[in-house]
Design a protein around this nucleic acid. Structure first.
Lengths: 231, 231
DNA sequence: GAGTGGTCTAGACCACGGG
DNA sequence: CCGTGGTCTAGACCACTCG
């Protein structure tokens, strides 16, 4: 073994040993200090390498108990949820969007519950169609909380989509996202130009600023959409 | 400003400044050395904090150019793709699975292309139904490459599912996963006990060991499934 | 050329948690 | 209790890239 000086080399070597079953699933591996001696580097270098591997789920690390190869490595995939415009323009296509509807109303109770709103609180409701090269790409239904999105009433969203406007003007601290499949209802089918009943890929996102909900958006992707990522 | 000694405190403070627009999107922030002085800690502590933030996409970092707040923070979400059995048992439900079909055949050409196989190469094809509390949960169609999965022919997969068997016995170096929506065909509808045409959430995964494909699996989740994660 | 992030090192202290 | 990972520090060198 030549000396491994950088954490990425150490990582690579550790991954090799796991992959080739030199260290088997469930098995304890040498501790950081021992590996540092073997590889001829500082312990912090080994630490960095093992820490990164543990983040992928391939190693279980515990103080005092040491590091073990995970018995059942649960794959972890990191998705980059792109701004729709970027997603389209990255492929070299032309992006356009079109605000189809806009009202300020009291939302239905499932939205109130999901966003944790007070009863009777009015929200801005926007429906938007995003187009790639003129073809429907995503149909969006969005609720915006006027309290957490200052001056939202004055924005017409013709030049900039609600998503981009919110990214620029409304802070958020955390959120959640779900992906699911849904049969196209008449509204979605008409907007996206597909047959009613078509299976659509749907993303639903809610974002918060501290305790207050900022926006809840449901995106209906046109037929054939795939969310793809390396493992 | 009291002294911030640990990288998580530094991270928190930096996130606060970004969130409260003290540092605006697109704006350059002070370099690591300056922040280290301001916070009264070592530069490596600041480095760790900023590095972690950059990984979420909220900061753009470049040598010589320094660190900037991202103009359009693209949300990144990390999903843990669980082993189906764990997913079910974690909820306190009972897991069972049932191998519905098994043959060794030359796969159709789309599978050959996706996995990069030689023409005429035979693969093991398995269809499996996974059940939660006796109810259909996932219908699985899987191709396994006998060359990269040693002794797969001798395994009956009644006690252990193909996924878990492969995790234990077949090494893999990388893979890819896609999520999409599909209308249930007759086969899926019958297996999952839903109406044909129902929108199903589908996951498609291919894994590789070095250059050789190990397995390609398509998972059809029962109606109502959601993939959920915090942002 | 020079400023900035990326990393390595040796040494230290500490928190957690298994035995 | 005490071994292990988690982290901090000060200092150093290097790689990249902007001007």
């Amino acid at each position: 073994m030549t000396r491994l000086h950088d954490w990425q080399s150490v990582q690579k070597e550790v991954l090799r040993r796991i992959n080739e079953r030199e260290w088997k699933p469930g098995q304890q591996i040498p501790n950081e200090a021992e590996l540092a001696i073997e590889f001829g580097c500082a312990r912090s270098t080994v630490n960095r390498a093992l820490r990164e591997i543990a983040k992928t789920g391939l190693l279980d690390r515990k103080r005092r108990a040491g590091s073990k190869v995970a018995a059942q490595p649960s794959a972890r995939a990191t998705f980059t949820i792109p701004v729709i415009r970027n997603e389209i323009e990255t492929r070299g296509d032309t992006y356009r969007h079109h605000v189809m509807g806009r009202k300020t109303i009291v939302p239905p109770k499932d939205v109130v519950a999901a966003m944790g709103l007070e009863a009777g609180h009015k929200m801005l409701f926007l429906t938007t169609l995003h187009l790639a090269n003129g073809a429907p790409y995503v149909y969006e239904r969005r609720w915006i909380n006027p309290l957490t999105a200052p001056n939202v009433a004055q924005e017409c969203f013709t030049d900039i989509s609600a998503n981009e406007w919110l990214l620029r003007h409304a802070a958020y601290t955390h959120g959640e996202i779900s992906f699911l499949a849904a049969n196209a209802q008449d509204i979605e089918a008409e907007a996206l130009g597909c047959a009613p009943g078509t299976a659509l890929f749907v993303a639903e996102r809610i974002t918060w600023n501290q305790q207050s909900a900022v926006t809840k958006v449901t995106l209906y992707y046109a037929e054939g959409y795939r969310l793809h990522t390396p493992l």
